[in-house]
Write a protein that binds this DNA or RNA. Structure first.
Lengths: 107, 107
DNA sequence: TAAACATATGTTAACATTAACATATAAAGG
DNA sequence: CCTTTATATGTTAATGTTAACATATGTTTA
């Protein structure tokens, strides 16, 4: 009956998935899983250009996946919603499933 | 220490998220959450062209998110990996979080 | 307030994705 | 074996995304 009320979320969901579908952004999110980091921290850890990191951070922030706090000269970014870690984690499980063993029923 | 061993999955994860980032594909997956459906079933439920549905089904199948079985003239598709439902579900939670109440700590 | 540092923004070209259409294949029934 | 039904595939144009670069902004400290 309200099997259809979920449709409301689908568009927004697609938007979230699009955010996560970029390896750079995904890497950033995973880095932030443990602790807040400055832009430069991320630049160094991921070996990317500063503008690119800033750009992706801006996108992630615009969609409320992360937030930032200024400390002196530096901007520290951190995850804004722990749920997103669940998303990433669930996907990790799916990926393991695909990579390791192929299918379940079918072989 | 092996905080880095997860990096192996990130590329494949990004690929999965890309699959989920298309509203059409997402709609299809959600439809299949409950029961296998033929191509035409999906066409009717989603009001899309048959070629487009077939095309997206092919993509989903190529990435092992669904599989198909021929019954007479029809091809029935179903989810191949229940994990993917967890991914969708986790994301639903995140989306609710964003839409309903904005942030947690910050207000 | 100028210099140095940290980060953000704007622009554009390369590339990837999607949608729309025509057409091809495959099975079933007459 | 021809027709109908169900689905798949190929092609192309429109659109969206990413990466790379130059440059701008904001903060601190001398």
């Amino acid at each position: 009956m309200n099997e259809n009320s979920d449709n409301i979320w689908q568009d927004e969901m697609a938007r979230i998935f699009k955010l996560l579908s970029n390896p750079t952004r995904l890497n950033i999110l995973v880095l932030l899983e443990n602790h807040p980091l400055s832009v430069n921290d991320i630049v160094e850890k991921l070996q990317l250009s500063q503008p690119q990191v800033s750009h992706q951070l801006a996108i992630l922030k615009a969609h409320q996946l992360i937030n930032s706090e200024r400390v002196g000269k530096r901007n520290f970014y951190q995850l804004d919603d722990p749920h997103i870690l669940n998303v990433i984690d669930s996907t990790k499980n799916h990926v393991k499933h695909v990579i390791i063993g192929k299918k379940h029923g079918e072989l």
